[in-house]
């Protein structure tokens, strides 16, 4: 019903400008955890550190891998949990 073009306009990660189509493509290529996806396409590596996209991406992973969210590895959360400008450490 919907064209591929409209799939391109569904944004999942606002910070890194990643669409649902791009994330699903990577899942199909074999990147099966959030942290793997983060390493290849930077989802959750942007300024919000995944606070907006994490739940959506975990849901996409669960749907496409046919598993429950709680059975998937959760992304590693490291400090600082919010970006700090280097200048602030001077």
């Amino acid at each position: 019903m919907k064209s591929d073009f409209s799939e391109e306009k569904k944004i999942v990660c606002r910070c890194e400008d990643l669409t649902a189509a791009e994330i699903i493509k990577k899942i199909k290529e074999g990147y099966h955890t959030f942290d793997e996806l983060k390493r290849v396409i930077r989802c959750g590596a942007g300024m919000c550190q995944g606070r907006t996209c994490r739940d959506l991406i975990m849901k996409l992973l669960a749907q496409h891998l046919n598993r429950r969210i709680e059975d998937l590895p959760h992304p590693t959360i490291r400090p600082p949990i919010k970006p700090i400008p280097l200048k602030s450490f001077q």
Partner: peptide
């Protein structure tokens, strides 16, 4: 604009919630 550290003997985390986002065109 400054990073500092504060030591505590006990901590209560009461950070609240974030709003969920939704996938649709635009």
């Amino acid at each position: 604009e400054r990073y500092q550290e504060v030591g505590c003997d006990a901590v209560i985390v009461a950070t609240g919630a974030k709003e969920k986002f939704l996938i649709f065109e635009n």
